[in-house]
Design a protein around this nucleic acid. Structure first.
Lengths: 223, 223
DNA sequence: CAGTGGTCTAGACCACGGG
DNA sequence: CCGTGGTCTAGACCACTGA
């Protein structure tokens, strides 16, 4: 190893790299702790410290008596971590979505979609993906489907969203957004600009979401 | 001990309680690790696991070679954790504020204030505090002062904000907000409803902030 | 130099999952 | 039953702080 910092940090970086580069794919079991520790040349205690950090970052999941696996986006927990809208009472709601348009050029794929909560259009968003990571991207158009874009990225393109930065503001609805969300032009909408990153820290998605927050609020926990 | 769960969790709960009930006050040094471990009847390793959790929760700070102290809100890090507005380039800005009104009744203290960024009024907010925890609350009125409300709670009322839940939405400015923030009536504003909690999990503040997001955005990291 | 937290190890024992 | 991760301990050594 090239010794940048303490052993447990080196171990964590190495494991993180193996997940980012696809050596270990989502859903795959990691080697047992004693085996991994021997392979990395560290004690089991040191390895466990690295694994605990990866678990906090939601890159792996540890299962008592079974082993550790690379995290998958299929669990509700992972999905709702990136979907912060809740109803008036703070309850989580499962959205559906309708892709209205997909455009491609050499550099990127652009998607426009509506997301529905309890049957009503609540979010209108435009998503941009780097063409290099999403070759042959396709989705059924104009059909109401389960809202599982990050699951789709992971399953069909090997891209796992691990982290995202968001920038929120309030804007007035323009004609397009007003029509899509069935609100008056000029009505206040919550605008969310998101950049999502994979386990290796590379930006893998940019999206702008316009949200009608009359019936649903964006929930955050500041811990 | 009453054994609810693993030793390290019991130790963490016990230390957390001592911070919440004021046995150890903000800024105070904790006993050295070997001493604390002996007092709690656990090994130093187990104690360290509990302390690490408290450090992640920002309840204590560990200082190499010196010791551990109960966290204070004077550090920039703690302040900006609860202040998410950033300028267009994502840089943190230190706000100032003007308290415009303080009202009291038997149950609560109500505060109205404006917060300024680079001299311009950007946030208009109303804050409600439980009278029981904030006896004799007072602040200079109508004067531009450093924005340090949570520091004030801690220093003058022994209340440390440890955690907060927020609910965000976009609304149209009413006449009062429009005048306060110098925007047109009906202009879109970001509304943030916050409930803040102390180390013991008790709600200690409710506030509603109305924010002009034309020049500043609300920044979040989804890790 | 003494005292503090930071790292790393080795090993014992427990709790869970699945043949 | 065995293999997995979970907890807990004891102790060695390092790195930093301040008198």
């Amino acid at each position: 190893m090239l010794t940048p910092g303490p052993l447990y940090a080196q171990a964590e970086a190495l494991l993180r790299a193996r997940i980012a580069d696809g050596t270990w794919l989502p859903g795959m079991a990691l080697p047992a702790e004693p085996v991994l520790a021997a392979e990395l040349g560290v004690s089991q205690g040191t390895l466990r410290r690295a694994l605990a950090a990866l678990e906090r970052a939601r890159l792996i999941e540890k299962l008592q008596g079974k082993g550790s696996v690379v995290a998958t986006h299929t669990s509700e927990r992972a999905l709702f971590h990136f979907f912060r809208l809740r109803d008036a009472k703070g309850r989580a709601i499962t959205p559906t979505s309708i892709v209205t348009r997909i455009m491609r050029d050499a550099r990127s794929v652009r998607i426009a979609r509506l997301r529905l909560l309890a049957g009503r259009a609540v979010i209108f968003e435009r998503i941009t993906l780097p063409a290099a990571r999403f070759a042959g991207f396709s989705l059924p158009l104009r059909r109401e489907l389960p809202d599982e874009l990050y699951v789709h990225y992971q399953r069909h393109h090997g891209v796992t969203v691990a982290r995202a930065d968001e920038s929120l503001s309030a804007i007035a609805a323009d004609a397009t957004a007003a029509r899509a969300l069935d609100v008056a032009p000029g009505a206040p909408l919550l605008r969310v600009d998101r950049i999502a990153f994979d386990a290796g820290g590379a930006a893998v998605e940019r999206r702008v979401s316009l949200i009608d927050t009359r019936a649903h609020h964006y929930r955050i926990n500041l811990d």
